[in-house]
């Protein structure tokens, strides 16, 4: 009896230690990043302790920076087009993979997921070679094409997990009842898949908006926001406003990610498919 109780006590201690470790891990994950917003309010050009007092000056300086606003505009443009394009491509692909039986499906899916397993520097330089071989000038469009490549796998993963639990008989019922294919898509398929689409749009937008290395090689004279930030990080005098910008980006992407996750999880649990994570 007492040995059993001892074992139980030991196990409780083990669980407690694991929990403490997990919390330390979260601290390790978040603490370094939290220094960005902290120093963005610090009244000193030098990023060092002790803190000098609260200021919003860096945020004002950042908002007055035209080059920054221009880069932000570029990133939004690229991010939105990439989100729409890769979600459409991902939706078609996910529909094909979940609905139709065809030979070579695994190989095709693996090929579509491949960009996630190739270092971005390789993707960046090889696409750069392609455009230079074609004498095609670098622009925001070449950046967007590159980003689409790495966003499609994410869109496919999110949408495949959404469509996997999709009840085909709903579409068939609609067709049997006399709706045509277009109205069936619009009134049955679309509403059911909507949460997946929204979450795919958000996530692919974030991936594109944050992506640095591919844009670094392909952006030519029109920098995206990360490329702009990279060039500004070299100047110590511009660091504080980069921190302010970084703090805002972190805040915005946190909000978007939580929203996208909420949408996607709600969708997945609707279809009674617990736990499965659509990534990789």
């Amino acid at each position: 009896m007492s040995s059993e109780r001892k074992a139980a006590a030991r196990q409780r201690r083990g669980v407690w230690a694991l929990g403490a470790f997990a919390i330390l891990y979260l601290v390790f994950l978040y603490l370094p990043v939290l220094f960005l917003p902290l120093f963005s309010f610090n009244d000193s050009r030098f990023i060092a302790f002790p803190l000098q007092g609260f200021t919003l000056a860096w945020y004002e300086e950042m908002l007055a920076d035209d080059a920054m606003l221009n880069a932000l505009g570029n990133s939004l443009q690229v991010g939105i087009s990439v989100a729409i394009l890769s979600t459409i491509l991902g939706l078609l692909g996910a529909k094909a993979v979940t609905r139709y039986a065809m030979p070579g499906k695994e190989a095709i899916t693996a090929f579509i997921m491949l960009p996630l397993f190739i270092p971005e520097i390789i993707l960046g330089i090889s696409i750069l070679i392609l455009w230079s071989a074609l004498d095609f000038p670098l622009s925001l469009m070449t950046v967007a094409m590159g980003h689409t490549l790495i966003c499609v796998p994410f869109a496919m993963a999110v949408l495949t997990s959404r469509l996997d639990g999709f009840d085909q008989s709903l579409e068939e019922a609609s067709l049997d009842l006399g709706e045509n294919a277009w109205m069936t898509f619009w009134r049955v398929t679309f509403p059911l898949v909507m949460p997946g689409i929204a979450s795919s749009l958000l996530l692919t937008f974030i991936v594109s908006f944050d992506e640095f290395l591919i844009a670094f090689f392909l952006s030519g004279t029109e920098p995206t926001l990360p490329v702009f930030m990279w060039s500004e990080l070299r100047f110590p005098s511009k660091l504080p406003r980069m921190l302010a910008l970084g703090a805002l980006i972190l805040l915005a992407s946190c909000v978007l990610v939580v929203f996208a996750e909420w949408l996607r999880r709600r969708g997945v649990s609707d279809a009674e498919r617990g736990g499965g994570y659509g990534i990789t």
């Binding site: 990043v33 991936v207 944050d210 930030m229 980006i249 946190c254 939580v258 990534i279």
Partner: peptide, 9 residues
Amino acid sequence: IPFWTSYLL
């Protein structure tokens, strides 16, 4: 969340 937040930052 960290998976999706700016790599550069």
